[in-house]
Write a protein that binds this DNA or RNA. Sequence first.
DNA 1: CGAAGAGATTAGT
DNA 2: ACTAATCTCTTCG
Length: 175
Amino acid sequence: MKHRSATIGALHVSSPFGTAVIRYGEEPAPIQDIHLPAPEPAEAFGPFRAPDAVRRLADMLLGYFENFAMIPIRWDWLDLTGLTELQLRTLREVGDIPPGAVKSYGAVAEAIGRPRAARFVGATMAANRFPLLVPCHRVVRSDGGLGGFGGGIELKRSLLEQEARTAGEPPPFKP
DNA sequence: CGAAGAGATTAGT
DNA sequence: ACTAATCTCTTCG
């Protein structure tokens, strides 16, 4: 990874799936990454007050855990340093998948103009620093399987089940 | 720098 | 089930 400003704080958000953590650095794009579930040793930080963007994102996440509706992505809040153009295009594409829907790795690959790069899309999802916000859990295998998930496959299944249920549809995956 | 390895995949057999 | 194909990024000589 390239630059990325030093981490100056972390905001914890409780959810039905465990505690989520938003780590942040300096303005103007303070949000470094989101963790779910939270990394075990709770990180200790100084007496800093979270930037506005961070607190608003925390609210958005709380809202999501309540109604599982689409989270509007503020790309300008996110620290995207170190990402290549193609990776950014992939994240933007995945960001458009609404709750209750899913898209295959291959379909995303096609959407970014690399129809044979399904595996690349998978690798990019594995490196996604903004889970939930960039809904990498909505990217699944073309054969109906779930595919992988950094936070654990059972979490991915839970999220998709909740979203499908809220959208009034059957779970969009096989197992 | 070029070569080789590594994926949260896929389509075929 | 297993295999080969395919693409970008990372890591190594």
